[in-house]
Computed example of a mutant assay.
Amino acid sequence: MTTGAPTPAYRTSTSQQPRRSRLRTLLPLGLAAWLVLEIWLLTVVAGAAGGFTVFLLLLAGFLLGAMVIKRAGRRAFKNLNEALQRGTAPGQGGGNGLMMLGGLLLMIPGLASDALGLLLLLPPVQKAVGAYAERRLRQATPGTLGDAFQQARIHRPDGKVVPGEVIRDEQ
């Protein structure tokens, strides 16, 4: 029987632990700053125009956001339905996703989020943000989605690559 302090099964070393990404570090700080900004703007407007006016602004933003999301969702579903009837693959979102994001930002209580949501409803802003997002997405993910599925399909968990297809001979 041995006596003494038990030895840990693992060693903790800062050099072996992966570093936190910049996004993971700054995102909580950014959200906290956004929340403080929203509360400050609401108190400033409430002090200038009154609490009931702020309530009406928040209610109007919520209702407008709900209408925008409903309209963009219907348009996206209509485009998908037409593409399926034609037998073609659905095209790009055509701004429906950005319209839904704008509507969601309108529904979130706060004046800064309402202003950002209203900006996303403007067609020139949608085109600019859509082009920027598409450019960043193409840089981040080389190849197509089909390539990713193919790569996932042919790589086995043990690391062996199995080229070809499986043909089942049903007898």
Rank of each mutant, 00 (worst) to 15 (best):
A72G: 05
E82T: 11
G110I: 03
E82R: 13
N79C: 06
Q171W: 11
G73I: 02
T25L: 15
G61N: 11
P90Q: 05
T2Y: 05
Y10Q: 13
A48D: 12
D169G: 10
R75I: 02
Y10V: 15
N81D: 12
V45D: 01
M107A: 14
A140G: 10
I154V: 14
L121Y: 05
G95F: 09
L23I: 13
K70M: 10
R24A: 15
G30Y: 07
A148W: 14
K78E: 05
Q150W: 10
L105T: 01
V125P: 03
K160H: 11
P90M: 15
E82I: 08
F62N: 07
A46P: 00
T53D: 03
L27R: 04
L137P: 00
R156S: 05
K160C: 02
L105E: 02
V161H: 01
L35N: 06
M1Q: 07
L42S: 13
L37V: 15
S15T: 09
L106K: 03
G117Q: 04
N81E: 14
L116N: 00
E82L: 10
L59Y: 02
L42P: 01
M99S: 13
G93N: 10
A72P: 02
P8Y: 10
G4F: 08
Q17Y: 04
M99H: 01
L57A: 13
L56H: 10
A140E: 10
M99A: 14
D114G: 15
G130E: 01
L116H: 01
V68T: 11
Y10E: 11
L59C: 09
F62K: 05
G47E: 09
R11H: 10
R74W: 12
Q171L: 11
V166R: 11
Q151A: 15
L35Q: 08
M99D: 00
D169F: 15
M100K: 09
A76F: 06
Q85P: 00
N96F: 04
R71C: 05
G143Y: 07
P6Q: 11
V36G: 07
V125R: 04
P123Y: 10
L80R: 12
L27K: 03
A148M: 12
